[in-house]
Amino acid sequence: MELKNQEIFKSNFEAQELWLRNQMLKINAIGQNSFQDLDRTARDYQKLTNEGDIFIRPCDLTHFLRMNLSADGVKKLAGSLRIAKHRKSTSTYQFNITEANRSKLWLLAKQTGKTQAEILNQMIVDLESDSVTV
């Protein structure tokens, strides 16, 4: 398995294991192209998970992926890991904002070239904790 960006595969083994388990659940689905050889992959996965351990060791997982993933599988896993990394470092909030403030935020984003989330994050960082009243 050739990896363009090997760094992403050197961490977050929990996300890699979850991705693999999900792929194995749909291994017989039409259009499954994440693996080179479906029969060999199924046998190797059975060996990997029948070791009696609750968790798959990172070195075993890495070896399994190197031996079984297709080029498309590498792309899919890399994309999933990038998304998992992003989600791990951010949180999504849903809140109500007045129409006037929403317009101001949109205008600020347009003027600065930043996203609305970047602007809100920067405003929070810039606030001094003693100036906030509850």
Rank of each mutant, 00 (worst) to 15 (best):
K4R: 11
K4T: 12
N5W: 08
Q6T: 09
I8D: 05
E17P: 01
R21Q: 05
R21T: 02
M24C: 07
L25Q: 13
I27Y: 00
S34Q: 13
D37A: 07
D39A: 12
R43W: 02
R43C: 04
D44L: 05
Y45I: 05
Y45S: 05
L48W: 01
N50R: 13
N50M: 14
E51T: 15
G52K: 05
D53E: 14
I56N: 00
R57M: 00
D60A: 00
D60E: 07
L61Q: 00
H63P: 00
F64W: 01
L65R: 04
R66F: 14
L69T: 02
S70H: 10
G73W: 07
K75W: 01
K76V: 03
S80G: 03
L81N: 06
K85H: 09
R87D: 15
K88D: 06
T92F: 05
I97Q: 11
A100W: 02
A100T: 06
N101Q: 09
N101V: 03
W106G: 06
L107W: 03
K110L: 09
T112C: 05
K114R: 05
K114N: 02
Q116V: 06
Q116C: 07
E118R: 04
I124V: 15
V125F: 03
V125M: 01
V134F: 13
V134W: 07
